[in-house]
Design a protein around this nucleic acid. Structure first.
Ligand code: MN
Ligand code: MN
Ligand code: ZN
Ligand code: ZN
Lengths: 147, 147
DNA sequence: GATGATTATGCAATATAGTTGCATCAATGA
DNA sequence: TCATTGATGCAACTATATTGCATAATCATC
């Protein structure tokens, strides 16, 4: 668990009941250094407490809607989930390995984006800008060079 | 069809046989002003020529591997496909409406990205940087205000 | 042009990820 | 206690994509 995050508090401030299941989901995601899929969250919680797969999906949706979590597109088929940016967690890009599928959080200052033009000219409402870096991860590069 | 693109040529240069089906897929995507899903490509081609759904998926994969097309994450479940950046098509971000799911190409200069830090510090190989802008599109904003 | 090898396509079955409907359980308040 | 509401479970279902294998088309060699 991140030193700055009281998950119970996060949920209450977002206006959702801090049920045991919701706290579990949030703690599993908050305690991991990379975003997780619904299946991974389900499996992790399931090792200690019984929970239904559908409940996990519903909680993930709920927490994304309330901006406690963010849904991260991963290049692959399954969405990944991480803590939404807040006072203590700066928004940051994610890397996705096109060989092994690994998803990794990148440093917030590894990229800088200037979106002034977008905000001036785009006719819709912009809620979020997601950056996905695609390539080959370190591990896969190593393995590849061993051939 | 884009004035600058000879699809037959694009395929040959990429080293893939320019079969009728491949040309169809490429022409449908190249002729549209926003990226399309596999299902949309299939339906569009299917109005005039018989083609199998699986063939469409295989061609999309092949052309993405050969960098003729790019796969665009859409926030939703289905991947979208557009022409890969080349001499005549600058890379550009995409907008995805979280209400209606519409995917729209944004102007290449609506965002500028500085990735120097990433290239200096990231241990893997970076092939592509995808930017996905999420929000509410103009149409959905209008509809919403009509209530 | 016939022959065999290779590549592209079709079709059915299957897999994966996410969603829906409805029943039940738990918490809250009158 | 009872009624109301929100949270969860479970089974069925949907949407999207992939696999295995058969057939058709294309290509290379003679
Ligand atoms: Mn992250
Ligand atoms: Mn585009
Ligand atoms: Zn990898
Ligand atoms: Zn919309």
């Amino acid at each position: 668990m991140c030193a700055h995050c009281n998950y119970q508090n996060l949920l209450e401030k977002a206006g959702v009941e801090p049920t045991a299941n919701r706290l579990q989901v949030l703690a599993v995601i908050g305690g991991n250094d990379a975003p997780l899929t619904a299946a991974e969250v389900f499996a992790t919680i399931g090792r200690f407490h019984p929970i239904n797969r559908v409940t996990v999906y519903r909680i993930l949706d709920l927490l994304v809607r309330h901006r406690v979590l963010e849904r991260i597109s991963s290049g692959g088929r399954a969405a990944h989930f991480g803590l939404a940016p807040n006072k203590y967690h700066a928004p940051h890009p994610h890397f996705c390995c096109s060989r092994c599928g690994a998803v990794i959080c990148l440093n917030p200052d590894s990229l800088s984006i200037d979106a002034d033009n977008l905000h001036k000219t785009f006719a819709g409402e912009v809620d979020r800008i997601e950056v996905l870096v695609e390539g080959i991860c370190r591990n896969c590069l190593k393995q590849r060079s061993n051939h």
